[in-house]
């Protein structure tokens, strides 16, 4: 048997430095991965771990006590109430806006889309401030509202308005590109078959965007429950009355009730983790039906 030496060498694996032209050397690759992961560990995972560590440092009993404190319970209830009002409001708006923008051609459309995104570029503090300027005691409307006993500033309606403002674009900006991508063909077909506008919307449009809609609702809800700046400005921090969970965390923290503050914070952190899990599951499962509203 003759063994051609060159052939024999060819059976060996190629030398290490020979790699496809579009990858880096393993050392470079692992260094970059290590840098990236270390950065995430320090900036994301450590704070997250700190929340749960600090929350449970005083023991499980103290944790349970902090959460079941009447003020904490009131804050949880208020937070759920705020989300329960503001998310459906923005849902209806998102559907209407997406229907108008995605299914019709009209002048000023791109301006409208820009305006819908506007709340994202406004500081949360300003989002709260504008309602104080509009409805506060020093405003034009203020005295009139006071005479009629309508409380907006330092009351639940103000908190709801501020929350709606900061979560305003979430559902619309998820639905608009999704519905634009799907075009108008199916709706036109349904109408040509005799369906009414509502029937078309319910039976044709809505099923096509349901996962994207859910995705938008998820993000909207997370922000609604967690909003701090805007709500802080307008709430007046009245314990048990206008305190949402994030505000309650702040009050406890400023009173040096650290364990209690972190206990309530841990609930919000769990909500964040749950949101991430559901969001990721939606992205993996229904990637085609979601135009990931990334960036906010």
């Amino acid at each position: 048997m003759v063994l051609d030496p060159s052939l024999q060498a060819g059976r060996d694996r190629p030398r290490k430095h020979l790699r496809a032209a579009t990858t880096e050397a393993p050392a470079v690759r692992w260094t970059l991965i290590a840098i990236g992961l270390l950065f995430l560990a320090v900036f994301l995972l450590l704070p997250l771990a700190a929340v749960f560590y600090e929350a449970l440092r005083g023991g499980v009993a103290a944790y349970a006590e902090a959460i079941t404190d009447p003020d904490a319970m009131a804050a949880i209830r208020l937070t759920l109430l705020i989300a329960a009002i503001s998310v459906p409001c923005n849902l209806v708006f998102g559907l209407a806006a997406a229907w108008a923008v995605a299914k019709f051609e009209f002048k000023g459309k791109s301006l409208l889309v820009t305006l819908i995104d506007l709340p994202f570029s406004v500081s949360p503090v300003i989002s709260g401030l504008v309602y104080i300027l509009l409805f506060g005691s020093q405003s034009l409307l203020g005295p009139w509202l006071a005479r009629h006993g309508i409380g907006i500033v330092f009351a639940v309606p103000g908190i709801v308005l501020a929350t709606i403002f900061v979560t305003f674009p979430f559902i619309a900006r998820e639905l608009i590109p999704l519905m634009q991508e799907q075009g108008t063909g199916e709706e036109e077909a349904a109408i040509s078959l005799g369906a009414s506008g509502w029937k078309t919307f319910l039976l044709v449009t809505l099923p096509n965007v349901k996962w994207g809609l859910l995705y938008g609702v998820l993000l909207c809800n997370a922000r609604a429950m967690g909003e701090f700046g805007a709500v802080s400005v307008i709430s007046g921090h009245i314990r048990g009355v206008t305190n949402t969970m994030p505000l309650h965390v702040e009050i406890l923290y400023n009173e040096y009730a650290f364990s209690a503050a972190f206990a309530v914070a841990s609930l919000l952190a769990l909500l964040a983790l749950l949101t991430l899990v559901l969001k990721t599951a939606l992205e993996w499962r229904f990637a085609d039906n979601i135009v990931a509203a990334r960036g906010h």
């Binding site: 997250l48 922000r223 994030p246 965390v249 702040e250 909500l271 964040a272 991430l276 906010h296």
Partner: peptide, 9 residues
């Protein structure tokens, strides 16, 4: 995570 975690937390 920073999008999902409330800023106060």
């Amino acid at each position: 995570l920073p999008f999902a975690l409330p800023t106060a937390v």
